[in-house]
Simulated assay, not measured.
Amino acid sequence: MFVRPFQLSDYASITSLFNEVLSEECCGETLEAFAKQLSLDPDLVLVSVMNDEVVGIIIGTIDQRNQGYYYRIAVAPQYQRMGIGKSLINGLKQRFIQRKVSQILVTVDVHNEPILPVYEAVGYTDRNFSRSYRHLRIVSGR
Score class of each variant (00 low, 15 high):
residue 1 M to L: 14
residue 2 F to T: 05
residue 6 F to V: 05
residue 6 F to Y: 15
residue 6 F to L: 09
residue 9 S to C: 06
residue 12 A to Q: 14
residue 15 T to M: 13
residue 16 S to L: 14
residue 17 L to I: 06
residue 21 V to R: 04
residue 21 V to P: 04
residue 22 L to R: 05
residue 23 S to E: 10
residue 24 E to C: 05
residue 26 C to P: 00
residue 26 C to T: 06
residue 27 C to Q: 14
residue 27 C to T: 11
residue 28 G to K: 13
residue 29 E to A: 04
residue 29 E to V: 03
residue 32 E to S: 12
residue 33 A to L: 10
residue 34 F to G: 01
residue 35 A to M: 12
residue 36 K to T: 13
residue 36 K to W: 07
residue 36 K to H: 09
residue 38 L to V: 05
residue 38 L to K: 13
residue 38 L to T: 07
residue 39 S to H: 11
residue 39 S to K: 15
residue 40 L to W: 05
residue 40 L to V: 13
residue 40 L to E: 06
residue 42 P to K: 07
residue 43 D to S: 13
residue 43 D to R: 10
residue 45 V to T: 15
residue 46 L to D: 04
residue 46 L to I: 12
residue 47 V to T: 12
residue 47 V to K: 04
residue 48 S to E: 12
residue 48 S to R: 02
residue 49 V to T: 12
residue 53 E to N: 10
residue 53 E to K: 15
residue 53 E to I: 11
residue 54 V to K: 06
residue 55 V to W: 03
residue 61 T to C: 08
residue 62 I to F: 02
residue 62 I to C: 00
residue 63 D to T: 01
residue 64 Q to F: 11
residue 64 Q to N: 09
residue 64 Q to S: 09
residue 66 N to E: 09
residue 66 N to Q: 14
residue 67 Q to K: 09
residue 67 Q to Y: 14
residue 68 G to K: 01
residue 71 Y to I: 12
residue 79 Y to K: 04
residue 79 Y to S: 04
residue 80 Q to I: 07
residue 81 R to T: 09
residue 82 M to F: 09
residue 85 G to M: 07
residue 87 S to K: 15
residue 90 N to R: 14
residue 93 K to L: 11
residue 94 Q to G: 09
residue 95 R to Y: 08
residue 98 Q to H: 08
residue 100 K to M: 05
residue 100 K to W: 06
residue 101 V to M: 05
residue 104 I to K: 00
residue 105 L to E: 02
residue 105 L to D: 00
residue 105 L to S: 05
residue 105 L to V: 02
residue 106 V to G: 00
residue 106 V to F: 04
residue 108 V to T: 01
residue 109 D to H: 01
residue 109 D to N: 10
residue 113 E to R: 10
residue 113 E to H: 08
residue 113 E to C: 01
residue 114 P to D: 04
residue 116 L to H: 00
residue 119 Y to W: 02
residue 121 A to P: 08
residue 122 V to S: 07
residue 122 V to K: 04
residue 122 V to Y: 07
residue 122 V to M: 07
residue 124 Y to W: 10
residue 125 T to H: 12
residue 125 T to Y: 06
residue 125 T to M: 10
residue 127 R to N: 07
residue 135 H to T: 11
residue 137 R to L: 07
residue 137 R to C: 08
residue 137 R to V: 12
residue 138 I to K: 02
residue 138 I to E: 01
residue 139 V to P: 00
residue 140 S to W: 08
residue 142 R to K: 12
residue 142 R to M: 11
